[in-house]
Simulated assay, not measured.
Amino acid sequence: MQRGPDHPLRCEYHAAGLCFSCTLIDEPYSRQVADKQRAIAALIDPLAPGLRWLEPRLSEQLGFRTKAKMVVAGTVDEPTIGILAADGSGQDLRDCPLYPPALSSAFAPLAAFVTRARLEPYSVPLRTGELKHVLVTVAPDGDLMVRWVLRSTEALARVRKHLPWLLEQLPRLAVASVNVLPEHKAVVEGEREIVLTERETLAMTVNGIDLHLRPQSFFQTNTEVAAALYRQAGAWLEAVSPDSLWDLYCGVGGFALHCAAAGREVVGVEVSEQAVASAQRSRDERLAADDATMESVTFVADDAVGWASRQRGAPAAIVVNPPRRGLGEELSRRLEESGAEAIVYSSCNATTLARDLAWMPSYAAREARLFDMFPHTAHGEVAVLLERR
């Protein structure tokens, strides 16, 4: 892939008609961002007279993805690592330039591992085989997490046997696991995870804070832009200076840990027990390092909607970072009635964001900012500061 100062990028996979994941790659990056913000603003602005849009936070155009979800296809001796073609065969994307070298350099050893451990790639047309995906995450310091998604544990012994060889090939491999996905359906992973290494978490250092990712933890795939998103939320809340804060859908604690302040009571709520365990570990490590801002930070494993509805009172401020489905009516109306002074809403789906804002008429959207997590696609993350009227 080649680029000019503001010209469309050329990707050889895209040019050859082999991959169309980057749907906007033929457009200059400045136009991509302008169109993305225009589309989001068209949904939000009618609900927010006087809303101030901050300058978009741009992304690197190459090497920005720190997580790869690769389909494994082909044969044991000639595996492909990439995506599926229209006919169900594998299309290798090992040279996709969206991945940084620290991540993409792992693909060749991982392909060799498929052959060495005799992991038969899964065939979608035939519904045969064991290995469906290989998921790779790289931390800012270069450490790696690798997960093999298998249909059963039949090959588990072979994975264990040959793992020492892979550790020699990939010295930065810190966490390795097998995920079991027996169903014949188009999902990336199953519920069962078997960790194969002594380390169980990958430390993603963001703005000087270690966020611990377990194999099934959600984390933004664009770490640099995610760091800017956390800083923005922290800056908004610093101006409001609330004495208490809820972080709903807190994940591994990114917003809660970044928005903590001495004397501020922070509660992070996340349904995933693994994510909460990771968030607690990050908090405990900072407490051990005499970080006084962590003294009043707690995390709860619970459904955000149910937990918020059971609370009698409300904090001075709330951060919400829901999945694409948004908050929904019940939680939006709970926040509307909360009396919180400010809400920071981080959304990956402007349509559900606009819907939720309509259920919170007591809050005025003051500032908003686009965070371009996914260059060359129509997807974007937008954060909005809401203040009580």
Rank of each mutant, 00 (worst) to 15 (best):
V149K: 03
Q216A: 14
I44M: 05
T377E: 04
L170E: 04
T80N: 05
A68Q: 15
A342R: 06
E224C: 04
V136E: 00
G263K: 07
A73I: 13
I194M: 05
N349T: 09
A174S: 07
A102S: 08
C96W: 06
H162R: 11
R389I: 15
A108P: 12
R31E: 07
A86K: 15
Y99W: 12
D92N: 07
D372C: 11
D284N: 09
Y29K: 03
H376L: 10
I194R: 01
V382C: 14
R57P: 03
Q61F: 00
A354K: 12
S105V: 14
E238P: 10
V225N: 05
R127T: 13
L54N: 11
E341G: 14
M145C: 07
S30Y: 01
R38T: 14
S296C: 10
T298N: 06
A112W: 04
D210N: 06
L119P: 12
A239W: 01
V33I: 14
D372K: 05
P375E: 05
G63I: 12
N207I: 07
L237E: 03
A106S: 15
A301W: 06
D95V: 13
A203T: 04
L335T: 13
N222W: 07
Q61S: 08
R324I: 12
S362H: 03
A289E: 11
E387A: 06
V297G: 07
R192G: 00
R366P: 08
